[in-house]
């Protein structure tokens, strides 16, 4: 049974038909990437999985369970965490408080303390700045915080929306290294990226989204060799 499965999902904003029948699967332990141009519907797909948006038609299954009956905050308790687009950190809360909120769904104090150590190992910068108000962090640090905060939920499935956006090239490498590390430790990842080049390097498989429809789905290698992907998303002629 796949970790995550979308079957013919249609989602709307008012009358705007943003997702026109998305079907995809993510197996346990995988990194799957979703690439596509601006406005293709990548964020909308993640919002539909996390329950912020309910599909008007079609189903989202998490380990075979239909998520339709659950509200967004309940889906977190099922083991799904998200790094939202544009980071979405709580700017007025401190770094430590943001991380507390990441662990909001948990009761196991000991496990939370362990995970706090672990995210501080992954992102030592955050440890130095734990009492700083998050809004005053640099863009890159905010991105680290958004990722660290999602990890504090100890998710089984991590949804990441453009974690490399707005980062300097050195930092981008760093972020993708972290993503691989998180995955090696056993977290399944659905990664939305515009940086198709990097995304296809870390992912096992990928899907290409165009104006609300999946036009291609293949292994990462397969996509890298695909002339259409090379032309449209990897900037090769």
């Amino acid at each position: 049974m796949p970790m995550l499965e979308l079957q013919d999902v249609h989602a709307y904003y008012g009358n705007i038909h943003a997702l026109k029948g998305i079907s995809l699967t993510v197996e346990e332990g995988e990194i799957v990437t979703l690439i596509g141009a601006n406005g293709a519907g990548k964020t909308t797909t993640l919002r539909t999985i996390s329950g912020l948006l309910k599909p008007r038609q079609g189903k989202v299954y998490l380990e075979g369970e239909d998520l339709d009956q659950y509200k967004a905050h309940e889906i977190v308790y099922k083991g799904v965490a998200m790094v939202p687009e544009g980071r979405g950190i709580f700017a007025k809360l401190t770094v430590a408080e943001n991380l507390d909120m990441g662990a909001y769904s948990r009761r196991d104090k000991k496990g939370i303390a362990e995970d706090l150590e672990r995210v501080f190992e992954l992102f030592p910068r955050l440890k130095e700045r734990r009492n700083q108000v998050a809004g005053t962090l640099s863009g890159g640090e905010q991105q680290m915080l958004a990722t660290a905060r999602a990890l504090m939920a100890r998710p089984r499935l991590l949804l990441m929306d453009e974690p490399s956006m707005g980062l300097a090239p050195v930092l981008v490498e760093d972020v993708f290294d972290r993503i691989m590390e998180i995955n090696h430790e056993g977290t399944t990842i659905l990664l939305v990226e515009q940086n198709a080049h990097m995304a296809l390097q870390v992912a096992h498989r990928g899907y290409v989204l165009q104006t609300g429809e999946i036009v291609l789905g293949d292994t990462a290698d397969g996509l890298r060799q695909n002339p259409m992907v090379q032309k449209a998303y990897l900037g090769m002629e």
């Binding site: 912020l52 509200k71 967004a72 905050h73 998200m82 939202p84 979405g88 709580f90 905060r149």
Partner: peptide, 20 residues
């Protein structure tokens, strides 16, 4: 803390598992 999180961003608060 959850109250302060909700006052900043309800959607993101929900993504933390907070029942807004």
């Amino acid at each position: 803390k959850a109250m302060r999180a909700v006052s900043e961003d309800k959607d993101v608060a929900a993504l933390m598992g907070i029942d807004v």
